[in-house]
Design a protein around this nucleic acid. Structure first.
Lengths: 263, 263
DNA sequence: GAGTGGTCTAGACCACGCG
DNA sequence: GCGTGGTCTAGACCACTCA
């Protein structure tokens, strides 16, 4: 019935005053609805953990059928931006949920189950402001010289130091972040980012290599020099593919391994 | 309207005539349809690359609406078992397609694009029959002592040896596999498995570690002893979660990196 | 123009969670 | 018992491909 974007002439005029684009850029209604919901998520109309309006409400709001809203939400759910719970509603996804904690951490113990280990113990080694190098700026879509926060920390499992991590965050978005905050917050760091800074990490990409640690790194991880380690370089994004964190981890793989499912 | 499996006799009553199972194991119609299509795929009713019947045909065959078939196929497509092409039909997925070649290989060149490198050159070092060890048997769901084929090979990119791989296959399913076949087949090895042995790899899991090569390994890969390498242990499955291949690769990560997307 | 997958609707009913 | 998401249907129309 109605339509909302480029291809349309009645419910909302097309406004295609531009040049003759080769691709008319047909966009199905449910994609447009998805965009609208995404916009609301992005602008905090509903907070992480909260329920979004029911499908029927959204259908009424956007003047489309429930089925169309459903398909939009289906895609958001597939991208982990939202979580459906039958009988209860649809909820804004959060890194604080018990079930999907450490969603981005693929390191598993060789023996037993991650749940046996319990959560990682964090040791903050460093937390300071600095100016972005050219490289750093490019990765985080900043300008060279912009403020950046660097964090260095160790994650230990059952007392064994296993991950040595450097984290870089755009200073702008994380004003006032302190080492204490990082050390004392219970739960995933990404959950704290949501709560205290309104920054939601939505997806990430990792580049993995095998490397040898330098002396200092070997000491922090309590391994002999010459022990091969996994270098995991992660770029994490918020909405709209905006990069918000660069992380470089050194993983011990003598007791753990990086686990990946391929489909 | 109709239904096909456990929960039903016709209108679709709950059918709780058995012991008091705590979970009635409700299975939606489209899941049952999915199972039926899966069964046909598994038993080769349609070969890799071929089109399966249209949604309308399948709907008629199973006596359900097109929408129900659609949802079943949607899931199969999401699992990469089938590929939809608007205007043409739905096709049995294959590892031989140009687009998704090397679906399971996550190693990318640091600079440039994988397409620039072109396909890997294969050097077969070994291809022999042996008896499964206890470990091997457990991984491949065989009995210790069952026949296993072991392949050792090198993959080179633009002439540079980059991956040293050991592959173990259940001898039963790969009778008659030869080193020549492995060396001369154009295209992904998994495509050859489909064509010559009717074995389709559907998903896989990898365990990744950083390791140091022994002398022989270092020589094959043409790297100095002490060069850290990625150890990638892959277990690949056919339909029904049946393991069909165990693979252990040593990846050089001085010019390449393992790339992973996290959602 | 015929056939295929893709979108959209409207309505009925089901499973689930909670009060 | 109500509200939510989940399933199923039937039918109309759209976009794409190919002969």
């Amino acid at each position: 019935m109605s339509s909302l974007l480029p291809p349309s002439t009645e419910g909302t005029p097309p406004a295609s005053g531009g040049a003759a684009t080769v691709t008319p850029a047909f966009s199905p209604l449910y994609q447009q609805i998805k965009g609208l919901i995404l916009h609301s998520l992005q602008h905090g109309e509903w907070k992480p953990g909260e329920a979004i309006p029911s499908e029927i409400e959204l259908a009424a709001r956007f003047r489309v059928s429930q089925g169309t809203v459903r398909k939009a939400i289906d895609e958001l759910a597939a991208e982990n931006l939202v979580t459906r719970r039958q009988g209860k509603g649809t909820f804004v996804a959060t890194h604080a949920e018990r079930q999907v904690q450490y969603r981005f951490l693929k390191l598993l113990p060789d023996a037993g189950d991650a749940s046996e280990e319990g959560p990682a113990q964090r040791t903050i080694l460093e937390c300071r402001r600095l100016r972005a190098s050219a490289d750093m700026a490019r990765s985080l879509a900043l300008r060279a010289g912009d403020s950046v926060i660097q964090i260095k920390r160790i994650l230990s499992f059952v007392g064994v130091p296993t991950i040595l991590e450097d984290i870089w965050l755009p200073g702008q978005a994380f004003k006032g972040l302190t080492a204490e905050q990082l050390a004392h917050y219970q739960g995933p760091t990404y959950a704290m980012f949501e709560l205290d800074f309104g920054v939601r990490m939505v997806r990430a990409e990792e580049k993995i290599r095998a490397v040898l640690p330098d002396e200092t790194q070997a000491q922090w991880l309590n391994v002999p020099a010459g022990t091969p380690l996994l270098s995991v370089e992660r770029l994490a994004y918020t909405y709209n593919d905006v990069p918000m964190e660069l992380r470089r981890g050194l993983y011990r793989t003598d007791t753990h391994h990086y686990h990946n499912k391929l489909n």
